[in-house]
Amino acid sequence: MRLGLLGAIGLIIGTFVILFGGGGAAIYLGILTGLFGLKAAAASATSLVTALPSLIIGAWSYYRQGKINTKIGNRMLLAAIPAVVVGAVLSKYIPANVYKWLIGVVLAVLGCGMLLQKKTQKLDSKPTGQIYEKLEAALYGILGGLMVGIAGMSGGAVIIAGLFLLGLQDFQATATSTYVLVFMTATGALFHIAGGQVDWSAGLPLMIGALLGAIIAPQLAKILANTKITKYMKPTIGIFLILLGIKSLF
């Protein structure tokens, strides 16, 4: 019964988060601690290990469809990977309440930015525009990387918001987010595994379900890309981020 429930949860979460550019580690973290009583260190390690294979499958499928913008993704990763390492080192020194408050503010601000951005900006080809774009991409990478390193979350909320604000559209943004999260999650998993043992009895069923979801999601994205749903993706994700931020604050 427990294995079937975990597999079903993994399938639903895997499909949803890969479709919308997340990693799911934060959701797995909440489920493992809240529903199954795992300690924080074990839950962080298990959630990242659980999310990683589905992210790899999802990113590969999106890559084959030509949806990933590796140029912007790599700019984020150059800042994100060191931030994951720094976050993992500093995690023991940052009070949970302070971290939750900061993340809540960041998510709410990014969500508002997505809603208030009147139209998708075009990526600037001028030298000054390129410098600004690189700095902005690095900032989102740092914020996402710190989320992974400090709390064992995937950092997907910040990354997907940043990609939309940088001018990527609908499933190109979600595909690129999945690509970025592969490397961030892999780095974070190495550090969190060192600090907490992976609970494979919970992680494996979740992982198997998430892998199936990761196979389904890119194919579903291909179908949805030709529908009107793409028009509502950005505001929907923006509202979702605001709600996540408010939840973190209170």
Rank of each mutant, 00 (worst) to 15 (best):
F164E: 00
L139I: 14
S125G: 13
A151G: 13
L11N: 05
L204S: 11
V105Y: 10
K222H: 14
A157R: 10
L220C: 11
A173Y: 08
Q117I: 05
R64S: 03
F164P: 02
G162H: 04
G149F: 01
I150T: 11
A83E: 03
I131K: 09
V89W: 14
P82Q: 04
M147D: 12
L29C: 03
T15L: 10
K119E: 12
I142C: 03
A42E: 10
A40C: 12
T178C: 08
I68H: 07
I56R: 11
A51E: 06
E133R: 15
L55A: 06
A25Q: 10
Y93F: 14
K228W: 11
N97V: 15
R64V: 01
I239L: 13
L11D: 03
T187G: 00
F171I: 03
V182H: 01
R2T: 15
G167H: 01
L5V: 13
K71M: 13
D199S: 15
I193L: 09
S177P: 01
W101M: 15
L224P: 05
G58S: 05
S125D: 14
T236M: 10
L143Q: 05
A26Q: 14
V109W: 05
I160M: 05
A79W: 00
N69R: 07
A189Y: 06
G73I: 10
A137C: 05
W200C: 11
W200S: 12
T70E: 14
V85N: 07
I27F: 06
T176R: 00
G162D: 06
T50M: 07
T120L: 08
F16G: 12
Q65L: 03
N69I: 05
L77I: 04
Y93P: 09
A151F: 13
K228V: 10
G149E: 01
W101I: 15
M184C: 08
A173D: 09
F36H: 03
I18M: 10
G4D: 10
Y99C: 12
N97E: 15
L78C: 12
A157I: 13
G156T: 04
L146N: 02
G162T: 08
K118Y: 11
G156K: 01
W60K: 15
V85P: 04
T236F: 11
G196I: 02
I13A: 04
F20C: 05
